[in-house]
Structures are given as C-alpha cells and as structure tokens.
Simulated scan of single mutants.
Amino acid sequence: MEILASRVLFRPKDYARSVAFYRDGLGLAIAREYAGGTVFYAGQSLIELAGHGAPADGAPPFPGALWLQVRDIAAAQEQLRERGVPIARDARREPWGLHEMHVTDPDGVTLIFVEVPEDHPLRRDSRG
C-alpha cells in the first residue's frame, strides 16, 4: 500500500469555536476551505475541522494527542498566552529530553507543543 497524503480530521462539537481556536488562537494558516470544513497547515501535516457529521452527545473523546513541534517552546508559550490561549501545562524539560507544553482545544484534545533540543537523539543522524 502506498500512502499519498495524511491529515488529522476532527468533527468538533462547535465548529466555529474550534475554527477560531486553531486559526486565531494557535495562528495556523488555512490550507483550504470548503462548504462545511476548514483545513489548516500544521508543519508537514494537515488538521481538518469538519463542520458536518459532528460527534453525537456522549461520543468518546479523541483517544490521543496532537504532537506539534516548534522551534522555541518559550516563545510559543508566550505567543499563546498573548492570544489568550490557556496553557494546560507550562513548558518543561521531560525525562526523555524533550521540552513540552500542553494546551487543550475546545473539545478536550491535548495539543503537545514540543521543542527538540540540540543534544537530543532526534537531532542526530542514525544512519551510521
């Protein structure tokens, strides 16, 4: 099987509120809009909010988290605060070496903002 593209698709309970959060709060650029949906650029991926087919009341929450890499976690945290986005967990260095900060979207999805330090194994070429 060949995968040509991928994106994360959310069906928020309040479409307009979620669009405002991702567009204005996080400052993501819009890749595409269509009748009933908005697709945002998110690094090498896309986040799509569908205003149609919203989850039924009592639907289980999103079972994971979105991992979003940034260049400077402190600057990202300050920018989000300036935009009025509540920080669920302040940025800190984790035992595994990454700097992480948590934000929660309007539907309870955890967004993990990550800075990969220069000395982290993710920055090393493992090809030998």
Rank of each mutant, 00 (worst) to 15 (best):
Y22T: 04
A56P: 01
P106T: 08
Q79A: 15
A16E: 15
V19W: 10
A42D: 03
I47M: 06
A29P: 08
A65H: 15
V109T: 14
P106Y: 13
H52F: 15
S18G: 05
V114W: 00
V114T: 03
L46H: 13
A20L: 10
D72M: 03
P95C: 03
Q79P: 05
P117N: 04
S126G: 11
L28T: 11
F40T: 05
A16D: 15
R92T: 11
A5F: 14
L49I: 02
L26N: 03
A50K: 12
Q44S: 11
T38A: 07
V19F: 09
E48D: 13
W96Y: 07
Y41M: 12
E82I: 10
L4I: 14
R71H: 12
L46M: 05
G43L: 06
Q69P: 09
E100M: 10
G43N: 04
A31V: 09
G25Q: 08
H99W: 07
A35F: 10
V114Y: 00
L68T: 07
W96H: 00
V85P: 02
S18R: 00
D107W: 06
D105S: 02
A29Q: 13
H99Q: 10
A65D: 08
H99P: 07
L49M: 05
E33G: 02
L80A: 08
P55Q: 14
G128F: 06
A76Q: 04
P95F: 10
Y41Q: 14
V39E: 12
T38L: 05
P95Q: 03
A65G: 08
F113D: 06
Y41E: 12
E78A: 15
V103Y: 08
L66T: 12
R92N: 11
A35L: 12
R23P: 07
G128D: 11
T110H: 03
I112E: 06
A5P: 01
Y15T: 06
A35T: 05
L9P: 04
Q79C: 03
I47N: 03
E100A: 04
G27M: 03
G27W: 04
R23G: 03
G27K: 01
L122N: 09
R7N: 15
K13Y: 05
P63Q: 09
G37W: 07
G37S: 05
L66S: 09
P121A: 01
E78M: 05
G43D: 04
P106K: 07
L4H: 14
K13A: 15
G128P: 04
A35W: 08
G64Q: 04
S45H: 15
L26I: 14
G97W: 00
S126K: 11
A75R: 06
D24W: 11
D125Q: 06
G43F: 03
F10L: 14
K13I: 08
V85A: 07
T110G: 01
A75Y: 01
P60G: 09
L111G: 01
F62D: 02
L46T: 15
G84S: 11
F40Y: 06
G43E: 06
E78V: 06
P55A: 15
A75W: 00
D24I: 10
E48C: 10
